[in-house]
Design a protein around this nucleic acid. Structure first.
Length: 482
DNA sequence: TTTTGAGTTGTTCGA
DNA sequence: GTCGAACAACTCAAA
């Protein structure tokens, strides 16, 4: 009789190297059966959005290849994860299920109930770290509380022993002799059809571990030397673009940490850049840390007084924002980059988020939902904390009076208008001087550039000065009522 | 326990 | 055009 296998349950850790749970499964002395379950029974906000589903498809394909090189299969299932795992356990006789832990409240709860359900059948669920540099329980203030401010949090992380060096993939684990039934990747129906809006995405992205490593290498070779400044300019290729790879776990954060550190070794002039970049990994850590310690922030404002904030909830304004038709070129460029590529530059994310929440007074959750559906790197922790930070309701958030002026931001960070011209081509012929403010351009300049406001490009849907005053008044109202 | 320094990413206004 | 102050107090974290 064939030896019963152990199961490795893949979640958002789609890699084979530096994966503690898989390493533990492989060293259990039994064949390893890796599986992935697409759980379409979950509520919408807990399932991957459209852009993420595209990425997931290709990432699973890459994972299957990487597992294949180790001689392992990747079993695919679709359905309620608990039912599917129970079935898989029954079919194989497995006594142990391994996985990487997740900190999102619903996922953590799922681990607990699954642990109990499996235990009732005499099966053990074993959870392992691997998705974060520092486990959330390990970082506490001196008063043994959870940090609420980024800088002391990150300093505390940096006082910890440095993350361990990444480990190689398990060495030739045994594969099960017989396989339970598996779906094909196409059966998961993750790719968009009718229309296939992602037809050009394979030219933009390379999901999977190989793509993650290539992105990291490109970043180290071309961009880290000017990261601190370059990262603010959306038209430059000055960021790592690792976010979707990290979200799906195609590369471990400590592999990134060590690659960056090794690259900068012996180059004192890169030390500040390295620190800046690592602190961005720190923000990813902080978001997940906050979700672990303050699970309610997925639904509710971190700062309680914001539950009284007078959001307008104007659908028309929301739609104009979503479509990149606000009449503010930098905002529209960002929203169209998102729609077209599944990605938006970080600085522009802050600007469009500030615009939605402060200029349009639309609830941050509307923006968060849109990002969830359209971003390839959509991540509950980063998305929630990012939006709450901008809206002013989050932990360590921007002060309420910090309202981005999209025109000024454009002039500062896209001075030649390259970013706007790329994503808002109907403005491409405008001279630099007017590219961020078409509504104030002289009539003959507009005519020469073929721009007809209200026809080829919208008039600003709100006036910046008035919107700013309204936002300040709205924030003032929840302060005085508090 | 009390005190003290600090806190991602900005804008506007007036000198 | 450039520069510094004001914006509004507040909470957090550590000494």
């Amino acid at each position: 009789m064939a030896e019963t296998p152990v199961i490795y349950w893949y979640r958002q850790d789609l890699r084979v190297d530096d994966l503690p749970g898989l390493a533990a499964a492989a060293s259990a002395g039994r064949p390893v059966l890796p599986c992935f379950i697409l759980d379409d029974t979950l509520p919408e906000r807990e399932r991957p959005g459209g852009a993420s589903r595209w990425w997931l498809h290709h990432s699973l394909a890459a994972l299957a290849q990487d597992l294949g090189k180790l001689g392992l299969p990747l079993l695919l299932r679709r359905g309620a994860h608990a039912d599917e795992l129970a079935q898989l356990v029954a079919q194989t006789g497995a006594q142990t299920v391994y996985c990487s832990r997740r900190v999102e409240p619903a996922e953590a709860a799922r681990e607990r109930t699954l642990h109990e359900a499996l235990a009732a059948d005499g099966v053990t669920l074993k959870r392992y770290p691997g998705s974060l540099l520092f486990e959330p329980e390990a970082i506490r203030t001196q008063a043994d509380a959870a940090y609420k401010v980024f800088t002391p949090f990150w300093k505390a992380c940096l006082r910890e022993p440095a993350p361990a060096a990444p480990a190689a993939a398990p060495d030739k684990p045994a594969a099960p002799a017989t396989l339970p039934g598996s779906l094909s990747l196409d059966d998961l129906a993750l790719l968009p059809r009718d229309p296939d809006w992602a037809g050009h995405w394979p030219r933009l992205w390379q999901p999977g571990t190989a793509g993650a490593r290539a992105a990291l290498q490109r970043f180290l070779e071309n961009a880290i030397g000017d990261y601190d400044e370059g990262r603010n300019h959306p038209q430059r290729e000055a960021t790592s673009r690792l976010s979707p790879h990290l979200h799906f776990g195609e590369i471990s954060p400590r592999a990134v940490w060590h690659a960056v550190t090794a690259h900068c070794q012996g180059q004192p002039d890169l030390e500040a850049q390295r620190h800046k970049f690592l602190s961005e990994l720190g923000w990813r850590e902080f978001s997940h840390y906050l979700l672990h310690h303050f699970p309610h922030i997925v639904e509710k404002p971190f700062k309680e007084e914001f539950s009284k904030f007078p959001w307008l909830g104007n659908e028309q304004l929301l739609r104009a924002w979503q479509r990149g038709m606000t009449g503010y070129p930098l905002v529209d460029a960002g929203m169209r980059e998102l729609w077209r590529t599944g990605y938006m530059h970080n600085r522009v994310r802050m600007i469009v988020a500030s615009f939605l929440t402060k200029h349009l007074l639309v609830h941050w959750r509307s923006g968060e939902r849109w990002f969830h559906d359209t971003l390839v790197d959509a991540d509950l922790a980063n998305n929630t904390c990012g939006w709450q930070w901008v809206a002013g309701s989050g932990a360590d958030a921007a002060p309420f009076f910090r309202i981005f002026n999209p025109t000024l931001q454009g002039k500062r960070f896209d001075a030649q208008g390259e970013y706007v011209r790329r994503w808002v081509p109907e403005l491409a012929q405008l001279p630099d001087k007017h590219i961020h403010e078409p509504a104030r351009a002289p009539q003959q300049v507009l005519a020469a550039a073929g721009v007809v406001l209200g026809e080829t490009y919208p008039e600003p849907i709100v006036d910046h000065g008035q919107a700013r005053e309204a936002a300040l008044a709205a924030y003032g109202s929840i302060r005085s009522e508090a």
